[in-house]
Simulated assay, not measured.
Amino acid sequence: MKDNTVILHTAALALLPLQLLFSVFLLLRGHDEPGGGFIAGLVGAGAVVLYLFAHGVDATRRIMRFDPRDLLGIGLFLGTVSAFPALLRGEPFLSAQWWIFDLAGTEIKLSTVLVFDIGVYFAVVGTILTVVVSLTEAEE
């Protein structure tokens, strides 16, 4: 990774937060329009992979502050947990459940669909980063 240019280093630093922010936008937008957990996870993982290619595994592990396999586990857990509220209410497995909260005059809607999408997001990011980081470490 030492052969990279200054342009790649600078671009990776500038694009990382923008790509991560865009991935969150895609995640939250995905319920009504194109997007969702899978494509948002691909964009988020792509941001970290670009940083990895520019700065190496050690620098990437420092900015991640966690093991990608933990993200994969959290994603699988959230995806599984999102299925049970429907069963508790006597509805079919994975039926969408909505909760509406009034917070200081602002209506906030939460759903099991969002929990499932967040789980997919974490699972995709965790899977891709686990594979790419492992391959990069094996290469070094």
Rank of each mutant, 00 (worst) to 15 (best):
D3L: 08
T5M: 09
L8S: 12
T10D: 10
T10N: 12
A11M: 14
P17N: 05
L18V: 15
F22L: 15
L26C: 01
L26A: 08
L27D: 14
L27M: 03
R29F: 04
H31N: 03
P34Q: 11
G35D: 07
I39A: 04
I39V: 15
G41T: 02
L42K: 08
L42C: 14
G46E: 12
A47M: 02
V48N: 01
V49H: 02
Y51S: 03
L52F: 11
F53E: 07
F53K: 08
V57E: 02
V57W: 02
D58T: 13
T60N: 00
T60E: 00
R61K: 13
M64Q: 00
R69S: 03
L71W: 12
L72H: 00
L78Q: 11
G79E: 11
V81F: 15
A83G: 14
P85V: 09
P85Y: 09
L87Y: 12
E91H: 07
F93P: 07
L94N: 13
Q97G: 05
W99S: 07
L103T: 07
G105H: 11
G105W: 09
E107L: 15
I108E: 04
S111T: 15
S111V: 04
V113I: 08
L114Y: 04
V115D: 09
D117M: 13
I118P: 01
G119K: 04
G119N: 03
G119M: 04
F122G: 01
G126H: 10
I128R: 01
L129I: 06
T130E: 01
V132P: 12
V133S: 06
V133E: 12
L135E: 10
A138L: 09
